[in-house]
């Protein structure tokens, strides 16, 4: 394994811990992993609210809980834009009957 491959594996391990509930890699402080994971999630949610105000309006105070539920098992994949990611969230909401069609706007 080259040095680059080894670094790739370690970075992937850290990212899995931060975004996908993977185990804390050896040597890392579990508390900091938790804090960083929460910060990354909060940023993702803030971006969602800014890019899709229609969803935030539709869902009102349920937005946060629903976004958290959806996002918990769906880390954003490399190469998937924020907008495409949020289109998936919108589809997920529709499939659960959580969007009010009358209030839909162009996303």
């Amino acid at each position: 394994m080259t040095a680059r491959d080894e670094l790739a594996a370690r970075q992937a391990e850290l990212v899995r811990a931060l975004l996908a509930g993977g185990p804390v890699p050896p040597g890392f402080d579990p508390d900091r992993i938790r804090v960083e994971a929460a910060a990354l999630h909060a940023k993702r949610r803030a971006v969602a609210e800014r890019l899709r105000p229609d969803l935030a309006d539709d869902l009102g105070e349920d937005f946060g809980t629903l976004f958290d539920t959806w996002a918990a098992t769906r880390p954003r994949r490399a190469g998937v834009s924020f907008r495409a990611d949020l289109a998936d969230f919108a589809s997920w909401l529709s499939s659960r009957g959580r969007r009010r069609p009358a209030l839909r706007r162009r996303g």
Partner: peptide
Amino acid sequence: GAGGLDSGHLLPVPRTRA
């Protein structure tokens, strides 16, 4: 990001020679 996931943010790199 790494391993097919994008964190959407800036993560630190290890301060190693490698």
